[in-house]
Design a protein around this nucleic acid. Structure first.
Length: 216
DNA sequence: CTAGTGATTCCCT
DNA sequence: GGGAATCACTAGC
C-alpha cells in the first residue's frame, strides 16, 4: 500500500540542475513502478552521473543517435538502453535541457512489492540481490525500452515516478570512480561520479572495466 | 571473498 | 565488424 504522500512525484525542478548536484540527492529517494500486478517501490542506494557530450563515458559523447535521443530532451524523463545483448539499464535525465546528462540507477532496496520483483529475478539468492546492479534493478522493476522517454514527474498512475522518500545526509554519502565504463580507468583519468549510501548491503560490488576478448 | 569467462543482440563506425 | 554504463556461473582461497 502506497502512502498518500508517496503519490506526489518530485517536481521537474529537482532534475533541472547540474547532474552532480542531482545524483547524490537521489540517494534515499523512492522509485515507484506501477505494474499491472501492483506497485513495486525501490529505495535508491547507488547512482552514477554522466555529463553529456563533454563526458567521454557518456552515451551522448558522440552526439544524438537513435538510441540516446531522450537524453537530449527535458529533465525528469527516463532513458532506457539495451546492452550486452541481454540487459536493460535505466537513467533519469538531468537538466538543463539539451545538455544530455543523466543519472544511471545502479542499485536499490525493494521496499514494497518484493513478491513481484522476485518473480522477475529468480536467480537472486536473497532480497538484497534483487536490485544490486543496474541491469538487475531494471529487471526487478520490469523496465525495458518500451519505457524509454517516460516522464517520471507526471501526475497520476504513471508507469514510473520518483517520490521524496528520505534524503540521505551528506555524511552518509560516499563517492568514487565509475564502474565498467570503457575509456575511463585505463588511463588514470577517473572521476568520483559514482555515489552510494555508506555501508548499505544493497550496493553493487565495484568492478573495473574489462575489455572482452574476441570469440573464435 | 576475488578472478576469469561465456552469453547474446543491438547499434554505431 | 566488433564493442558494449552486465550478469551468472565456476574455481579457488
Amino acid at each position: 500500500m502506497i502512502a498518500p504522500s508517496d503519490r506526489t512525484p518530485l517536481p521537474r525542478d529537482f532534475f533541472d540542475r547540474p547532474v552532480l548536484d542531482v545524483a547524490p540527492d537521489l540517494l534515499g529517494r523512492i522509485l515507484v513502478r506501477s505494474t499491472p500486478d501492483g506497485p513495486i517501490a525501490l529505495r535508491l542506494t547507488e547512482v552514477e552521473a554522466y555529463d553529456g557530450p563533454n563526458d567521454p563515458g557518456s552515451h551522448a559523447y558522440r552526439g544524438r543517435t537513435a538510441r540516446n535521443g531522450v537524453m537530449f530532451g527535458p529533465p525528469g524523463h527516463v532513458y532506457v538502453y539495451f546492452t550486452y545483448g541481454m540487459w536493460h539499464c535505466m537513467n533519469l535525465v538531468c537538466g538543463p535541457e539539451g545538455r544530455a546528462s543523466g543519472v544511471l540507477l545502479r542499485a536499490g532496496e525493494i521496499v514494497e512489492g518484493a513478491e513481484l520483483a522476485r518473480i522477475r529475478r529468480l536467480s537472486a539468492r536473497n532480497d538484497k540481490e534483487l536490485a544490486k546492479g543496474p541491469a538487475r534493478l531494471a529487471t526487478a522493476l520490469g523496465v525495458g525500452r518500451d519505457l524509454d522517454g517516460t516522464d517520471a514527474c507526471a501526475a497520476g498512475e504513471t508507469p514510473i515516478r520518483i517520490v521524496a522518500g528520505t534524503p540521505v545526509p551528506s555524511h552518509q554519502v560516499r563517492n568514487g570512480p565509475r564502474t565498467g565504463v570503457a575509456g575511463e580507468g585505463g588511463n588514470g583519468d577517473v572521476h568520483p561520479w559514482r555515489f552510494w549510501i555508506a555501508d548499505d548491503p544493497t550496493v553493487s560490488p565495484y568492478r573495473a572495466h574489462a575489455p572482452r576478448r574476441r570469440r573464435s
